[in-house]
Amino acid sequence: TSSHKLRLYERDDYRGLMSELTDDCACVPELFRLPEIYSLHVLEGCWVLYEMPNYRGRQYLLRPGDYRRYHDWGGADAKVGSLRRVTDL
């Protein structure tokens, strides 16, 4: 099985509160109590970021690497509604 891990930060450049995720999350704002995510670091696996909860809205593919600001993943703003692991490519 492949492993997945990413870290979410409330501010750009990996500042502020950090939360780690290793499984799908249908509602990021509810789980982490963060209305917006300004940076993230994908440590393992690929993920799909959705701008709205319950895997809706615009989708962004996140490969392992650094995303210091939301425009690094192509986002128009810092809204992160849900995240899902990519298990098949």
Rank of each mutant, 00 (worst) to 15 (best):
M18V: 14
G57C: 01
Y60I: 08
G57A: 03
L40I: 14
K79S: 11
R7V: 09
D24R: 04
R33N: 13
Y14E: 04
V48T: 12
R58M: 08
S39C: 05
D88S: 10
Y67K: 07
I37C: 15
V86H: 11
S82Y: 06
D24P: 01
Y38Q: 12
S3P: 08
R63W: 04
F32D: 05
G75L: 01
D23G: 10
A26W: 05
N54V: 06
Y55S: 02
R69M: 06
S2F: 11
V28M: 07
Q59P: 05
R63F: 15
C25F: 01
Y50K: 01
N54T: 01
C46D: 03
Y70M: 10
C27Y: 04
R7P: 02
W73A: 11
T22N: 06
C46I: 15
Y55A: 00
K5T: 05
W73F: 07
M52P: 00
L83H: 01
H4T: 05
M52H: 14
P29T: 10
G81F: 00
L62C: 04
R63C: 08
Y50R: 04
V28C: 09
D66Y: 04
G45A: 04
W47N: 02
L21T: 04
W47P: 00
R85D: 11
T87I: 06
R84K: 15
G75F: 04
I37S: 12
Y60A: 05
P29Q: 15
A76T: 13
V42S: 04
L83R: 03
F32M: 09
E10F: 06
Y14S: 03
S19W: 10
R7C: 05
I37F: 12
M18D: 02
L34V: 10
Y50T: 00
Y55T: 03
Y50S: 03
S3F: 12
S2Y: 11
D23P: 02
Y50E: 00
L17W: 13
D12Q: 12
V48G: 03
L89E: 14
V86Q: 12
L21C: 05
L8W: 03
R69S: 13
R69W: 14
G75V: 01
S39W: 06
R85Y: 04
R7F: 09
